[in-house]
Every structure is written in C-alpha cells, then in structure tokens.
Design a protein around this nucleic acid. Structure first.
Lengths: 230, 230
DNA sequence: CGACCATTTGATATGGATCAAGCGATGTGG
DNA sequence: CCACATCGCTTGATCCATATCAAATGGTCG
C-alpha cells in the first residue's frame, strides 16, 4: 500500500547537545499553575530530532515557540504523525520508561525541557501535581480518540476536520498559518500529499476556504466545514 | 462514504436498573493491587447499554465476565468502536465529568461497578491510588495509539493485527473465541463486514489461520500474521 | 420445519493511491 | 542581479483496494 512518506530520517540528532542536558537551575514559567521545575528554553532547528521512539523518557517538554510533530515509522517506511504540538502544549510525557513516538521540530523551535523524575517524585508528595500529570495524560487520550474518528472519514472530512482543529488551537480567527508541510498533513491524516492538495483545492472551489499561499489558509465558511466534520 | 454500521440503537437501557445503583457495601476483589472500593458484580444482557456518551461519568467498571464494546456514532450513523474490553479490563474511567464514548455489553456480561468519586477522593490522599489511576489512563492511551496505527494499514494488515491483539489478550494459545460479530470487528477496524469476511477467507486460504466456526479462529502461522502486522 | 439473523460470496463502482508532469517560490553560485 | 537548481506544491491520467449492491448459504431458535 505504502500510503505515507517513505522514511526520511532526520539528520541532526540532538542539535543542541541534547541528551547531555545542562539543565540550568530552576526557573519559573507557570507550568499550568503549580509545577515549576524546568530548565531554560532549548532551541531545536527545523527537522531536528528531540527524542526518538524507544529512547528512555527522561524529560518531558513544553513548546515555547515553533511547532513539533511526533511520529512513528512502520517497518516498511510508512510514517504516521501522532500529533502536532503548538506553543503552550506539553509533549513527551510518558508513564512508562520509554517514549512511544519520536519527536521532531517542524520549524526552528524553542522548548522547555522538564526532568520527568523530578515531576514524578513531586507527584508522590503533592497530589496537586499528581492530578495534573493524570489530567495531561487524559488530555492526550482525548486527542488521540478524536484522531481515530478523523481516520475513518473521507478525505474531505479529514481535511476539514484538520483545519477546524488547527484553527481552534491557534487564537486568530479565520486565518491559519500552517507550520507543517503537505506531507506532514498527509501523514497525520492517513492520506497522500496529492489527495491533501486536491482536497484543499476542492474546498477552495466550493468557497469553504481560501488558500492565499500554500501555508496560509483562510476559513471562509465554517458552517460548510463543520458540516463536513460530521 | 458510510463505511460502518448504520446506527442500530441498543434497545434496553439500564437493564438491571443501572443508574439507580444499589451499590451494595464494600467488598474486595483486588482492583489491581490496592484499590478495593466496589459494589457487587452487576449483570448486563447482550447489547445492553452500560452508559452513553456524554452521560455523567459517575462510575467506572471492571469486566468480570463477558465482553464490552465502547463506541461513538457519527452524525450520519457511522459507528466507530473504540475498544473491546475483556475480563480483567477496566473501562469507563474518565478524568472529566462525562463519558466520551458509549459502552455496551457484547454478550451477557458481569461487570464490577466502582464509584468514581470514591476513587478520586482516595487518590487525593493515597498516592498509590493516584498513580494507579494515571497508569490506567496511560494504558488506554497506548491502546488507542496502537489503534491509530492499525487504521492506516491495508485490510489484511488490520485484520491480522486485530487477531494478534485478541490472541495476546486471551491466555489460550492459538485458538481465539471471538465474542464479537463481524460488524463489530469491521467497525473497530474501519472496514466493512464484507471486507472483514473476505480477508479472513484470504488468510485462511494462505493457511495463516483456520476458521472452524465463524466465531472461532485458529492462528496457524503467527510468523505470517506478524509479517502482515508490519 | 420455517423465520430470522449472521456470514460468506459474487459483480460492479468509486475514492483515493500511484505514476508522471508541470509550476512557482526560494536560494545559490557565477 | 540573473540563470539555474532545488524543493514543495499542484494538476493530470490511470489503477486498484475496498465499498457498495445483491444474492446465496448457514446456523439458531421457536
């Protein structure tokens, strides 16, 4: 079948000398409301790997700027993107000891790096923290469940759903500035780039959206998109 | 498109006078290792609804016998099954206040009903319990992530993956006794019954499996199935 | 035995994949 | 500053896996 991207391994691992984290002291940028155990924002270049599938999950991460994708590559090279993370989102949180997906920066990004063990230890004493961890995992669960519902739909429905999801996650009204390529979108939606592209032009032709430039989408008719969103 | 089952609403709600739970005292059946706050096993008839999407999540549940499906129905009637739960599995655990899926008994089943508030209160004091709740949610998350990977594959791969998953969850070696119909399997895998049926006969023809009766599957060649599992 | 329901099998249709150009923007070296 | 290579995206033509429509078979229960 081979629907998705054929594995295009990201070259530069740990561009900023990652795993040798010199986590510089404790600063505070309210992590939600109560958790403040994090290092300085760390920069990752476009396409740089933040962590790999099956690596020990020593850290979790909070996007400060830019955007991140997590993904898995199947044996035969198909890639499935699990999620996109935008500023404010936390990713890489695991209960087990290993990351279940890989994570890469989509564009040059800054990410807060948080030591998991510190958080887990704190959670053992502070049930506020414990609840927060649980809530974050549950939030992920909901997102993934919504993703499943996307994957059983038609191409139009998937793309419409994707656009609505993105627009809900960015504050700005009807204009979306996509950080990710068509290939990323395709691998997120379980489609090919060609189908994503064609579907966007269909939506444009029916005046549901406008595509002034390939990375910029204007939602022109949310009602129509919502109708597609089933 | 209309791939899945057209909504076939389950008739009998709360067959055993559910929501008026007469939760009879506290008995003990180690809930994992440390939690023991549950009522008596409650019977649900085949196809009976245990809870509906968007209902308040007052309880969570542990399967004692039988099997359960959770699902969502889209506007246009397509049904997506989110998971199958077998004896020992816990389902219906939410962090938020409402169930995000509906749940039905697939066959006559017995289910332990556990008051969520009791558990959540306990978790606020006992971090053993808090961790357990988190772990259970994380387990669900992993399962759903695996489900996503299934949904991007070919029909053969999905069916092979499903069979391997089921066989891993039932102790017995190579013989699986499926509690669910072809329609349930189809709605879980995002396929039609016809495709599920045809795919099973293909797998039978290649001697990967045997299908002595429609609900009984024998895994004859796990290597072949694993190969399909990508 | 007969009715009903689940499953299988067959014939055909179709949405999206695949194969293949073409096009526009961005960046690089001369 | 322009010519050209590169990359991401779009568009076109064709193919194929799975859906859809239809019918036959089989199993279960009254």
């Amino acid at each position: 079948m081979l629907t998705q991207t054929m594995i295009h391994r990201s070259s530069s691992r740990h561009p900023a000398g990652h795993h040798a984290h010199p986590v510089p002291a404790v600063n505070s940028h309210s992590f939600g409301t109560s958790i403040e155990l994090m290092g300085a924002p760390m920069p990752f270049a476009r396409n740089a790997e933040i962590y790999g599938e099956n690596e020990p999950a020593e850290y979790l991460y909070k996007v400060v700027s830019g955007s991140i994708r997590t993904y898995k590559v199947l044996n035969d090279g198909r890639r499935q993107i699990g999620a996109f993370y935008l500023p404010g989102d936390v990713f890489g949180l695991e209960v087990g000891d290993e990351h279940t997906f890989s994570a890469e920066a989509i564009v040059n990004s800054k990410v807060l790096v948080i030591k998991r063990s510190a958080l887990v230890n704190l959670a053992a004493r502070d049930n506020e923290t414990a609840r927060k961890l649980w809530t974050m995992t549950a939030g992920e669960l909901q997102r993934v469940q919504a993703h499943i519902l996307l994957l059983i739909k038609t191409a139009q429905e998937r793309v419409a759903g994707f656009l609505l999801e993105m627009s809900a996650r960015v504050p700005m009204g009807n204009e979306i500035d996509l950080p990710m390529s068509r290939q990323d979108i395709a691998d997120y939606l379980g489609l090919t780039i060609e189908t994503v592209s064609r579907t966007l032009t269909q939506l444009e032709n029916t005046a549901a959206i406008a595509v002034p430039s390939s990375r910029r989408i204007v939602l022109r008719n949310r009602a129509a998109l919502n109708r597609l969103n089933a």
